[in-house]
Design a protein around this nucleic acid. Structure first.
Length: 222
DNA sequence: CGGGAGATCCTCT
DNA sequence: GAGGATCTCCCGC
């Protein structure tokens, strides 16, 4: 595993993986394994709420997710495998990153058994490496606006198309962790954001009341 | 805070 | 060519 050198503050003497090293030393923190992601996206999506997405020195709590399956016209996998969405048809636990609108990236985690399904990570509550995340986010200062959207969180975490196909269960600098905080007992559930088809499906989940959720109100009433 | 327009380019038809 | 699993800026309340 290469030591990734990101934009660490000069005062920081820790390695880019210091955060992950800290998490490994904490017995309460465990990396989610293949089995977690091998389930259906409709089960994984709500279970990912309150889990921690880590990329090198930065991490954030997942507070909003959406599920995309093959039966869904809004899913990239709806019309079959292509060079772009190939990762979606691979094994679970891999990161599927796509580029859209000519300027944004979105990060998904492949679920199920090679069935072309994945869970879109829509928002994070920053935990560690906040300064670094802010530095990658133009003029945004408010912590609330650093990663409260799928494109924003990719920019903040430094996730790009080159990260597509990364195995999150392999122990690398990208991973999802359980730090002991359980998913919400009653997560919000409603319609997804920014799609023109498959709008009837309620496949979006979020942590109710968390200020980092991208769209707290629009889909609150499906 | 909410709505609307424009940016910008990769992907598939 | 058309259309995005979006974001920022700008306007109005």
């Amino acid at each position: 595993m290469p030591k990734m050198l990101v934009f660490l503050p000069r005062a920081e003497k820790r390695s880019a993986n210091a955060h992950l090293d800290d998490m490994k030393e904490d017995s309460k923190v465990v990396r989610l394994d293949r089995a977690f992601f091998a389930r259906g996206a409709l089960d994984v999506a709500p279970d990912l709420l309150n889990k921690v997405l880590a990329v090198g020195n930065c991490s954030g709590r997942i507070v909003e997710t959406e599920a995309y399956l093959r039966d869904d016209p809004a899913s990239h996998s709806f019309r079959g495998k292509t060079p772009r969405n190939a990762t979606m048809f691979g094994p679970p636990g891999y990161l599927y990153v796509y580029f859209t609108y000519g300027m944004h990236h979105c990060a998904n985690i492949v679920t199920g058994e090679q069935a072309g399904e994945a869970v879109l990570i829509r928002a994070l509550a920053p935990i560690q490496g906040i300064d670094e995340m802010v530095s990658r986010r133009r003029s945004v200062k408010a912590p609330r606006d650093v990663a409260n959207g799928p494109g924003k969180l990719c920019q903040a975490m430094g996730i790009g198309r080159s990260d597509d196909g990364t195995d999150l269960c392999a122990g690398g600098r990208l991973g999802v962790f359980d730090d002991g905080v359980p998913p919400p007992d009653e997560p919000g559930r409603g319609r997804r954001i920014g799609i023109s088809v498959g709008q009837d499906l309620t496949r979006r989940w979020w942590a109710v009341g968390d200020p980092h959720v991208s769209h707290p109100t629009p889909s609150a009433r499906p």
